[in-house]
Each structure stands twice: as C-alpha cells, then as structure tokens.
C-alpha cells in the first residue's frame, strides 16, 4: 500500500492501558489511545462539541468519552455515538514489537500541499 508514512512514536507501554497520551503535530494535537495491551488508535485530541481534550477522557472498549460533556466517540470511525452528532479525524496506527507507529502522512504537512 502506498501513501503511508509510518512513524515510530514510542513504546506502547508509555501509554497506560485504557489510557491515552497526546502528541503535538503541525495539524494540532493528536491523541494516541491504548485500548488493549496491543491495540492503539489515534484521533484528533479535540472534541467537536466544545473542544474538550479527548486524551483526558475515559477509554473503554474501542471508544473514548470526552471529559467535558461525555460525548462518546468510536475510535474506528471517529463518529460520535448515541444522540450526539459529529466526528473526529482518526489516523491509522500500528502496534508492532511493543512500539506504536502512526501514519504521519496527514500530520507532517498541510493537506493542501
């Protein structure tokens, strides 16, 4: 597959299990979620509702709950769940050999470039 720019970010153990850490990018902060021992997701660290930092939310199943007003997002699709409408941008992530890699193609340069 082309178009992926896999960037080794950190050891998966640097992210607490069922927790998150954020990374700074030119496109704004991105939250890395660790939903299982070997499972991670990445998404914009900003709730579309009131801008809550999603990396501070409670991580459950493959979802995160925004800490400000409890919007819940499916990390596979970025879609808000339940009655709330909205979505967050998600980014491909791989966990390999205890390392977390993110597809940085969309993070290193503006989309228009």
């Amino acid at each position: 597959m082309t178009g992926f720019t896999w960037l080794d970010i950190a050891a998966v153990d640097d992210i607490p299990l069922r927790g998150a850490r954020k990374i700074k990018t030119a496109m704004g902060c991105v939250a890395l979620f660790r939903t299982g021992p070997e499972e991670a997701f990445a998404a914009t660290d900003r709730c579309p509702h009131k801008g809550g930092p999603l990396s501070e939310g409670i991580v459950h199943g493959q979802s995160v709950t925004c800490p400000l007003h409890n919007w819940v997002f499916d990390l596979n699709t970025g879609q808000a769940q339940g009655a709330d409408a909205g979505s967050i941008a998600v980014h491909p992530v791989r966990v390999e050999g205890g390392r977390v890699l993110i597809d940085a193609a969309a993070l290193l340069r503006p989309p228009a470039a």
Partner: peptide, 12 residues
C-alpha cells in the same frame, strides 16, 4: 508532557 512532538518533523 506530550509523547512526541511532530511539529519539528514538519520543517523537513
């Protein structure tokens, strides 16, 4: 602290 800072990579 942030886990990583990719804004530095953006300069390349």
């Amino acid at each position: 602290a942030p886990l990583a800072d990719l804004t530095l990579e953006a300069a390349e």
